[in-house]
Amino acid sequence: MARVIAYSDALGEATVQAMERDPSVFVMGVGVDDPGGIFGSTRAPYLRFGDARVFDTPISEPSITGMAIGAAASGMRPLMVHARNDFLLLVLDQLANHAAKWSYMAGGRLKTPIVVRAIIGRGWGQAAQHSQSLQAVVAHFPGLQVIMPSTPYDAKGMLLSALSGDWPVVCIEHRWSYGITGEVPEGYYTVPIGEARVARPGRDVTIVAISQMVNEAMKAATVLAAQGVEAEVIDLRSIRPWDVEGVCASVRRTGRLVIADTGWTTFGVSAEISARVSETLFRELKAPVKRVGLPAVPTPCAPVLERAYYPGADDVVRAALATMETGDAAVASDSDAAARLHKPFHGPF
């Protein structure tokens, strides 16, 4: 049986292997050299390479990001880490106006292959400014790639893809992912950016899930199967570019689509997927597309409100049943069950 490791260790291993292969890879960000090591993910690189190649930075995200972009255009491969993806908003000018456009404006003669890791916070006390899920904001810009691996295998393979590719990549990680364990080969491998993964095959309804919602979708699929509904769960993995063909191929078979995203539905990634699938497969859809995501409000702090705010497996079940036109509130709205499905909160960052 293949080796089983945690998501955070898979990221660390990918970083070490990229740094071993390519001397131009370095890691920087607030706290990357800390013993905590960004949920443990930068600990192995720091212990292996020391502060010459894994180093702490001032709280100065815009200039650190800009510096990484300039260094990338000068031949380096910076991997930078923002402990919260909320801070991506501070660096959006650098990402959107510079990283995304530099190569294009130079007629393709310069590359800016930076990789930015950013974390989605979730848990009691994270509140509105440390918990956002901003993939739609970043994915809006042509020239940026956005990945959201949900498994340890993909975390390693996709980070290695990002660190060997030509494009600026933003890797958005859910903080609940770090403890997830799974089979991960010890050697170097890459998982291509832009290809979705069928996490569970099924014939009745396609559930496209993103990041932590993949786990919710898998739990939902189990519940649905008990009711005779075979859901196909697709882990989107890559937000931009996203696997239009793979998703459409599944929906063509099932005729039904539910999208479960960690972000807001309004103007969100789920809106984009819904639009593209509707444009492509309008006549083959047996039911309107359903979306599961955050309500259009900031994140509340109190745990009871938080539980109501975040969607879970039960919401996915309800959405899937709605597409089957057999929606049954008795099955779907057990909020206690939803709370039990959520992992407990393990301390502050």
């Binding site: 370095f26 815009p62 510096m67 300039g70 260094a71 255009a73 000068s74 404006m105 003669r109 310069l110």
Partner: peptide
């Protein structure tokens, strides 16, 4: 832009390019 001459560009976002230049300098130092 002229990559060969390391003319790393003219930028339209006022001041946004200063960190980029710091990055070029960082790469050289690294």
């Amino acid at each position: 832009f002229d990559a060969e001459r390391r003319m790393m560009g003219g930028y339209g976002i006022v001041g946004g390019h200063v960190p980029l230049a710091a990055g070029c300098a960082f790469a050289a130092k690294y």
